[in-house]
């Protein structure tokens, strides 16, 4: 079993450790995007009939700088998903025959164990979400404003329910992903930093998805 020599300069990205780094970097990039996205979304809660939100949506879809970022963001998603799928399919390779009894809950937390499931749900959510808002408005020329689109969708209890469930799984994903990214980049150098990152990760994983989930619930509750 000879080790393959890693060819410079990007060959190292194909090692399991290199792929992990790619996963962490794209993950952190997507995490920053989540913050920006949430900030914009919270405009939906302003009682101005959607004026502020629509202006923001207009800015986001026309500003050339944002358009470039959008491509980067898209690439980030693609790479993150690609690496994730690679790992999912690779997972069994290290252990073709599994254990008859495996008490994983004794040594891992539920968030790290459910990364695959949370990833899958978030992926489905992403597709539905993009189809509903991004594709509809950017490519199919929807007659509605962005605010109207959102209102319409969120007033549907099925859509809102799906949205909230997805946010719970996003929280799961972040609960491990946030910490994991820092660990992968080698930034957790001692116990103290580990605790800080774990706290920050927990707070982030709780607050950001909560912020997203409040919006559909706000619209839904208004229908009663």
């Amino acid at each position: 079993m000879e080790a393959k020599t890693v060819s410079p300069p990007v060959g190292w990205l194909h090692t399991t450790v290199g792929r992990k780094v790619v996963m962490a970097l794209t993950g952190l990039f997507l995490i920053t995007f989540l913050v920006v996205h949430l900030a914009g979304n919270l405009l939906l809660l302003r009682d101005d009939g959607g004026a502020a939100f629509n202006a923001y949506a207009e800015f986001m879809s026309t500003n050339p700088f944002i358009r470039v970022l959008e491509i980067l963001l898209f690439a980030g998603f693609v790479v993150h998903i690609y690496q994730g799928l690679y790992f999912i399919f690779r997972e069994r390779r290290g252990r073709p025959k599994g254990y008859a009894r495996n008490d994983a809950s004794a040594n891992t937390n539920i968030f790290s164990r459910t990364m695959r499931i949370s990833a899958l749900v978030i992926l489905i959510f992403l597709i539905v979400h993009l189809r509903h808002f991004f594709v509809e408005h950017r490519f199919l020329g929807s007659p509605l404003t962005m605010y109207e689109s959102c209102k319409l969708a969120f007033e549907n209890p099925w859509y809102s329910g799906f949205y909230v469930v997805s946010m719970v799984l996003l929280a799961f994903h972040l609960a491990h992903g946030f910490y994991s990214s820092f660990q992968t980049l080698g930034l957790i150098v001692n116990r103290r930093i580990e605790r800080v990152i774990q706290w920050a990760g927990a707070a982030f994983a709780f607050l950001v998805p909560l912020g997203f989930a409040i919006i559909p619930l706000y619209f839904l509750l208004q229908t009663f």
Partner: peptide, 22 residues
């Protein structure tokens, strides 16, 4: 070299679950 050999042997990737340290 050690990472390359680890991969060549067929060990899986690390996903920071921390089970090992427990």
């Amino acid at each position: 070299k050690m990472v390359a050999q680890m991969d060549a042997e067929g060990f899986g990737h690390c996903s920071n679950t921390g089970a090992c340290a427990v």
